[in-house]
Each structure stands twice: as structure tokens, then as C-alpha cells.
Write a protein that binds this DNA or RNA. Structure first.
Lengths: 107, 107
DNA sequence: ATAATTGTCAACCGGATGGTTTAGTATAAG
DNA sequence: CTTATACTAAACCATCCGGTTGACAATTAT
């Protein structure tokens, strides 16, 4: 079981089918069958991916008749993005410092 | 097998032990045993995590005597960060648009 | 020379993951 | 009423993952 929230988010993102589904959802809400359509996979299989995205909090669902409409949920993606942004800040300062060092004391 | 580079990066990040090791490496190069030390886990187990990080390109290694020194490799983290940043741009514009809409036509 | 340190490798284990099929439940359409 | 649609649920399968132990190799220390 995935306990940590970052764990769930990153492992949900670690699959191209799921990233593709998120990309499709940028165009707006879509039902499961429409999300599944691009993939050579049973509907049940695709629905499992949708379930993973939902359990990670990356999408929200609402039932309309027999269809289950999915939409992107920003907050969880933001958590992961913030985590990585923190790193980006680190590399930048680190690499800048290295560059400065090299300029001041060239080999 | 993890084929795609984003797959490898995100799935490497989807584990708290591995994220912790990356954090430890911000303080500088460290040998495997030092990376392993904080975790209640055999050295062999921890070394597997190090191997995953290396295969994903998140760290580089150099052998010094019997020690294997590891250091952060920025480029792969940047790839993942860029991917997420793209999303962040999307939510921001999306949420801003929604907010504008609500202000103009409040329920 | 011997022994301790620092890893790697291979085999193994249990549980998670990604997929399938088959069956069942609502809802919608004919 | 009957049938097609859109899922959901459960059982099953192969593979991967995170961890273990035990054996080995290479380097360093005594």
C-alpha cells in the first residue's frame, strides 16, 4: 500500500497511460470510456488506471447517468511540483556556485 | 521494464527511501554505506535503491578504493520538473479563468 | 598473512501492479 | 419489455518491487 502522498502522486505519474489520461483531461472533463478510447486495452483495464489517478487525488469524479465524468484536480499535482521546484532551486544555486568558483580559480 | 525516461524518473521518486537519499546527497557526495546508514535495512537492500537512482540517471557514481561515491545528477530531475511545470502553468491559467468567470457572474 | 570493511550478485519471498476475462448493475434507448 | 451502453467487481495471471540472506570480490587495516 502507498501511504505517503508524494509516493502516491509520483507512482501514479510513473505510467505513460496515466500521464496520457491527465493530458487528455486538460481539454476538459471526460467520461471513463472516452479516456480509455486511445489505448489498446480493455475498458476494465483502463478504468483501473483511472482508479489509480483518483486514489492519488489527481482527478475527481462525478457520476452523470451511467457515465463517470473525470476532471483534473490541481492540488496534488502542485504538491509534487513544489517538491521538485525545491530541488530545482538547489541545483541552480549549486551550479551557480560551481561556476563562480571556476571563474575565480580557473584550473 | 521501464522504457520511458519519465517513467523511470517518476517511479524512482515514488519511494521515500530514495527521496531521502537524494536529500542526503544535497549535502555532498556520499558512499553507499553512508547513504544506507539512516535506514533500518540491510546494506544490500539500500544498495538496490541506489542502483534504481543510478539507472534512472538521478545520480552518478565513481569508485574510490572499495567505496562507491554517489552524487546528484541534475538533468534528469530537471526533465521531470519541466514536465510538472508545464502542468502548473495549465492549472494557473485554468483556475484564474474560473475565478474571473465567478467574479463576473457570481451565483 | 589475516581479518575487517565496502560493496556486488544471486536466489528467494511476499505483496503490489498491470493486464485479462467473466459476470453483474445501473441507466438509456428502441 | 428488451437490449445496448457504461461502468464496476472479482478472480486470475505474469511480472515487478522492496526487502531478506548468504556467498563472493576487492580493498584496507592489523
Amino acid at each position: 500500500m502507498v501511504d505517503n502522498q508524494l509516493d502516491a502522486t509520483f507512482s501514479a505519474l510513473a505510467d505513460p497511460t496515466r500521464r496520457g489520461m491527465l493530458a487528455a483531461l486538460t481539454l476538459g472533463e471526460k467520461p471513463v470510456s472516452e479516456l480509455a478510447e486511445p489505448y489498446r486495452m480493455s475498458l476494465a483495464g483502463a478504468a483501473k488506471h483511472v482508479e489509480v489517478l483518483a486514489r492519488a487525488g489527481l482527478i475527481e469524479r462525478r457520476k452523470v447517468g451511467r457515465q463517470q465524468f473525470c476532471r483534473l484536480e490541481a492540488s496534488r499535482l502542485k504538491e509534487a511540483s513544489d517538491w521538485l521546484a525545491q530541488w530545482e532551486r538547489f541545483w541552480t544555486t549549486r551550479l551557480d556556485a560551481l561556476e563562480t568558483e571556476l571563474k575565480r580559480d580557473p584550473a
